[in-house]
Write a protein that binds this DNA or RNA. Structure first.
Lengths: 273, 273
DNA sequence: GCAGAAATAGAATATTTGTTCCAATAATTG
DNA sequence: CAATTATTGGAACAAATATTCTATTTCTGC
């Protein structure tokens, strides 16, 4: 009676999402409303009633029931069971432990740690929503074609530059780190066919911007890793990657920046084979 | 009729926990079973029925109802509402977005990014549960008393060492970074009254271990930042901080390590005033 | 524009789930 | 040890919730 696809209910949340996106296009009006609301509020399924979800999607409860059946479940309860069981996430302990750490009192080492952990975590989560996949792919392509990758990043960006150089080395990608040691200026090491990976955050480092401009002027591709699209690097780069780092106090956690950097480096290494 | 405390229901999850631990001691057998089960499975309240929780606690449903009332709620439903509403943040689109990133296919840049983000996040969460507060406080005390802090960390630990040096500098803490540039060995820069902060992870770097041993032999305090308590640094350090970093592929995210390092540095800076 | 099919809304129903109450039991006190 | 009080278990009840059904509306293809 039913369509072939609907015979078996999704057994995991991932399967559920796949089926949802797969069916989204050929669905009548009300059912599509359901699908869209559910897609945007998947997390609430476990803790809501049919009536609540239906109200949220602005459809009558019966429409939502039909939606559940379209998705392959016998009804709402069966669908909800999937999400109630899948709902195990780190929530409980994690925030409790964080709270315990903070109890040492403001300024205590463990309270500080809790703050930095939280800043790092927020940064990472924000990164998943702000990442520009097209720019990331472009950046990988540019660097994968380069003869030598020149990495530049100073001050607070220097740890990231160092780590990038380390990863590139491990992946056998020819890489030169412009570290400013001895105030030596290696700009003439830039050769045709090379590419530059420039990293800087506000307050932007003059030397980094300079090198990026130089490279750009000589026709070399530049990839920028920075904090916003309005960064001074924007004008002189062919691909711009931004990371929304959450600061605590005067210091940034670097978690998101490093995650982005290492992904970039590994992808480049892989693309070169 | 009721005890004074029970007149008003907890308005937040934290208040709930406080009241729970407060009452745990003077509770009859069955109610204590409830309290203990609930304390251990707080996260399941939002997605379970009275019957399920009661079965888990091995008490009849009515006992659990009485427990809800003892806690100040009118009944189970009211208690559940607290947890259903409190549960909004964190999970919802985050894991969705992560999944979308992964959909680029294994090995695609955005899939890699998703993996590294996840590794970083897990590392940070694990850090909150594994941190040894006593060791952390001891480490801060040791470094706060030092004339000069010597930071050493090479290879994959080098980015962390660099960042520590940067933060110490910003906080006006006298600090010397042993960076191995030119293979110069600065071990004779260690003066009485100084302290060493040594960072290394498996495979451990010989030079780092060496410097720590030297310092220890000369009576200087050594703080170790490493991956396990059985690290070779353990023998030659006065305080040992371990970070449980989750790797993806061959590379570690460094998120937890950096969070620990920066907390340590800021706490030391603050302690010095 | 007219069948026929598909989709929809809302009311009616069935089921699950929460809640109360009281008799039975265990603990406490004089 | 008896009397009183507190605690417990389970059955009966009430409320909330999911589900089905059907008349009505909206699409679709000719």
């Amino acid at each position: 009676m039913d369509e072939a696809a609907a015979l078996t209910a999704p057994a995991t949340v991932d399967e559920f999402r796949d089926r949802l996106t797969g069916q989204l296009d050929d669905l009548p009006k009300r059912l599509r409303q359901c699908a869209e609301y559910i897609a945007a509020h998947t997390d609430r399924i476990a803790v809501s009633t049919v009536a609540e979800l239906a109200a949220g999607a602005d459809v009558p409860p019966s429409a939502l029931m039909r939606f559940c059946q379209i998705m392959g479940f016998s009804g709402f309860s069966e669908m909800q069971r999937l999400f109630r069981e899948a709902y195990a996430p780190g929530w409980p302990d994690y925030s409790t432990r964080l709270k315990n750490l903070k109890e040492g009192g403001a300024g205590s080492p463990s309270a500080l740690l809790a703050e930095f952990v939280e800043a790092g975590r927020l940064s990472l989560e924000a990164l998943t929503s702000s990442v520009d996949e097209a720019a990331l792919n472009a950046a990988v392509a540019l660097l994968a074609q380069a003869d030598t990758v020149h990495v530049v990043g100073l001050r607070r960006a220097f740890p990231v530059a160092i780590y990038l150089a380390y990863v590139f080395e491990k992946m056998s990608v020819p890489c030169m780190l412009h570290d400013g040691v001895g105030k030596l200026d290696h700009r003439f090491a830039l050769r045709p066919g090379d590419a530059v990976l420039a990293i800087t955050f506000a307050p932007y480092s003059e030397e980094t911007i300079q090198l990026a401009q130089d490279a750009q002027a000589r026709g070399l591709p530049v990839v920028a890793l920075t904090d916003r699209l309005t960064s001074p690097l924007a004008r002189s780069s062919n691909a711009i990657l931004t990371v929304p780092e959450v600061d605590f106090g005067a210091f940034r956690s670097l978690s998101a920046t490093i995650a982005m950097a290492i992904s970039l480096a590994v992808a480049v290494g892989a693309a070169r084979g």
